[in-house]
């Protein structure tokens, strides 16, 4: 077991190194002049030249790569071309908002998804099953950026139930103490029992959280359904049935428990997907997170920022995969 984990970790490191190198190459061939950007919209030739020296762009490709890796080893991702601030600082500032959104939507996704999957499997081939299946396929087929706009119009523009975007209302932000422990507002405000902030944050996160949860809902529902259907045909379930245990207990306590392995893998997959989906969703909801950050970075080709986010997401992917592997390895059914 330990050897397996160490091996996986080492492989993960290797992959990360590859990711960093590929990112570096990709970003260097994106056509843009970082020096001109660094100086600003009305740069003069002399300023651009000076910036080229300042940014080390006149060095050879390999020297630049070496410097980049050396800096990275110290946790330095370079400075953003647009804001002239260290990318690491900015990532840290934007990360909690994204994490909060990702966690919440995965949470919603897993619970609703599991529920739908179970209902679907229990009523296989009945109309409830068809409806659930249709719904779960539909949720992974909806263009999230489109449904986001639509829901905004309905819930803010027409019904006026929920705010349009952002994390907090202006009044709360200006005139209330905002707790800052993890940076995840829901969690922090609950811990400090700051209900004004909690309520406000909850109202703000509902829409983007739901839009982002759509994909995990469908994914988890589909996976749970097929895993359950397999398990329900196993002998021990049949045995349980013949003992006269109620269908509900069989489903929830025996079958579901044993289908958690594959579902866990799917959940890690869903987290990864949700993370990327923030790139499309956050800017629509003015959500001050990584996705919004990279959306602006892509528009202005701010390559250190793009690299920073890419490397960050790749690191999370590698860890998520590792986690999925470990869950599978720890699953008694697989181990035996």
């Amino acid at each position: 077991m330990r050897i397996f984990i160490i091996k996986r970790l080492l492989l993960g490191l290797l992959v990360l190194f590859g990711v960093i190198s590929v990112t570096f190459v990709i970003v260097r061939v994106i056509p843009s002049d970082p020096a001109a950007q660094w100086v600003g919209p009305r740069a003069t030739i002399e300023q651009i030249e000076a910036a080229r020296v300042e940014l080390g762009l006149n060095d050879s490709f390999f020297v630049q790569y070496g410097n980049f890796v050396a800096d990275l080893a110290q946790g330095d991702l370079g400075k953003s071309i647009r804001t002239h601030q260290p990318v690491m600082t900015e990532l840290k500032a934007f990360l909690p908002a994204t994490l909060e959104l990702v966690f919440l939507s995965t949470f919603i996704g897993v619970f609703l998804g599991l529920y739908l999957g179970v209902v679907s499997a229990r009523r296989k081939d009945q109309w409830v099953d068809h409806l659930c299946r249709f719904f779960s396929v539909a949720t992974v087929s909806i263009p999230a950026f489109w449904i986001g706009l639509l829901l905004q119009y309905v819930f803010y523009g027409t019904l006026d139930w929920l705010p349009l975007g952002e994390r907090l209302s202006m009044n709360v932000k200006l005139f209330h103490e905002i707790p800052d422990i993890t940076g995840m507002l829901l969690f922090d405000s609950l811990i400090t029992w700051n209900l004004v902030v909690f309520w406000d944050a909850l109202k703000h996160i509902l829409l983007p959280g739901f839009v982002m949860a759509l994909f995990p809902i469908g994914l988890v529902a589909r996976m749970t359904r097929s895993a359950l259907l397999e398990i329900l045909n196993e002998d021990y379930i049949k045995a349980a049935r013949s003992y006269g245990l109620s269908e509900r207990i069989i489903m929830w306590s025996y079958a579901l428990k044993n289908s958690l392995g594959p579902t866990a893998t799917v959940v890690t997959l869903a987290i990864g997907y949700t993370l990327v989906n923030t790139f499309l969703i956050e800017s629509i909801f003015s959500w001050p997170g990584i996705g919004n950050y990279i959306a602006s970075a892509v528009v202005s080709l701010d390559y250190p920022a793009i690299m920073g986010v890419t490397i960050f997401s790749a690191v999370s992917y590698v860890f998520l995969n590792l986690a999925a592997d470990m869950i599978i390895a720890l699953d008694p059914q697989v181990r035996t």
């Binding site: 706009l149 905004q152 119009y153 803010y156 523009g157 006026d160 349009l164 975007g165 202006m170 200006l174 800017s283 629509i284 003015s286 959306a295």
Partner: peptide, 21 residues
């Protein structure tokens, strides 16, 4: 207080100004 804020979607900006937000 004067607050300056980035809101990318023009539809969002219009809805906010019409509501007085």
């Amino acid at each position: 207080f004067a607050v300056v804020k980035k809101i990318v979607e023009s539809s969002s900006r219009r809805q906010m100004i019409e509501k007085g937000d």
